[in-house]
């Protein structure tokens, strides 16, 4: 066909990295992600956080930055910097795990609806539209409150409520692929539907899924932060959102303990921005229609 697709299989991973690096937005995003993943993966190894290591007395509570605590201490006298490092790990972990669920569900529904069309498509799209308009946060709060404060619950709740946009995007791409010549041809040669989906459809929707996935990570990290802030975070696995929750309820703002509520907030801002920039840049590379944009 005349339209040229940039597929992951024909260009490979390096090609896209190079393209991303050439776009200022993509380059900044990659740099940010590199730094945050370093913080999340490496730092907790050297500066582990022990939630039970609380301060000895009242004088060690919410103290400002010092030699012993570079970023001060929290309301229980624990080190904020170490907490920040391990919080990065939890935030990133929840964001990525939820995204994996969301991507599998979303692209699965999208590909099947777009490929089989007809009544299955109509049915799946009605469900998708329903979840698209139902406000996510109240639903997440309701589910989180019912199923309990547990990291698995949070991952599942966010993952299973973030897929509708992916499904919509993947479906429309699959639909347009379906109209092209090679599907009827492959069918006449005796390929099964599943085989056609695997060999002809999936490679072509992959770049789109990847671009969308990167943006979904950003959304999932924000959702996790919000849920944890509301008080639904796992108390044993403190994420940046949970840190902000405890700093809020412990009155860190009123006591001017900026070292407690500024770092996690900037952390979230930084990591979400990184994913957003890379996602937008990737979208620009794979979708020539948006090439004119800055």
């Amino acid at each position: 066909m005349s339209r040229k697709d940039a597929t992951l299989t024909t260009h490979g991973f390096k090609y896209f990295l190079r393209k991303l690096w050439r776009d200022p937005m993509g380059r900044w995003g990659l740099l940010i992600l590199l730094i945050t993943s370093f913080v999340a993966v490496i730092c907790p190894i050297f500066f582990p956080f022990d939630p039970s290591k609380v301060g000895v007395d009242a004088s060690s509570i919410l103290t400002g930055p010092s030699q012993t605590h570079w970023l001060g201490s929290d309301e229980l006298g624990r080190d904020v910097l170490r907490q920040f490092f391990s919080g990065a790990r939890i935030s990133l972990f929840v964001g990525i795990m939820a995204t994996i669920i969301s991507t599998i569900v979303g692209s699965g529904i999208g590909v099947f609806a777009g490929y089989y069309m007809g009544r299955l498509d109509g049915f799946l799209m009605r469900i998708t539209d329903f979840f698209l308009v139902v406000p996510a946060l109240p639903l997440m709060i309701a589910l989180g409150a019912i199923f309990g404060q547990n990291i698995t619950v949070i991952i599942m709740v966010i993952g299973f409520l973030s897929w509708p946009r992916t499904a919509r995007i993947v479906r429309s791409q699959t639909l347009s692929l379906r109209q092209r010549q090679f599907v009827p041809r492959a069918k006449s040669l005796g390929s099964t539907n599943l085989r056609i989906i695997r060999t002809h459809i999936t490679p072509h929707v992959m770049p789109l899924i990847v671009a969308n996935t990167i943006l979904v990570v950003a959304g999932c990290i924000l959702s996790e932060a919000t849920l944890s802030f509301i008080g639904l975070g796992d108390p044993d696995r403190i994420s940046w959102g949970t840190m902000l929750h405890f700093s809020f309820v412990s009155g860190a703002i009123g006591r001017g303990a900026w070292w407690y509520f500024l770092p996690p907030g900037f952390g979230i801002l930084f990591i979400v921005l990184g994913f957003t920039l890379v996602g937008h840049s990737f979208e620009k590379i794979t979708n020539p229609r948006h090439r004119g944009e800055s």
Partner: peptide, 13 residues
């Protein structure tokens, strides 16, 4: 994009 990446509750804080 920067504003969009900020958690709403944190902006409030």
């Amino acid at each position: 994009l920067i504003l969009w990446s900020m958690p709403t509750f944190w902006v409030g804080m």
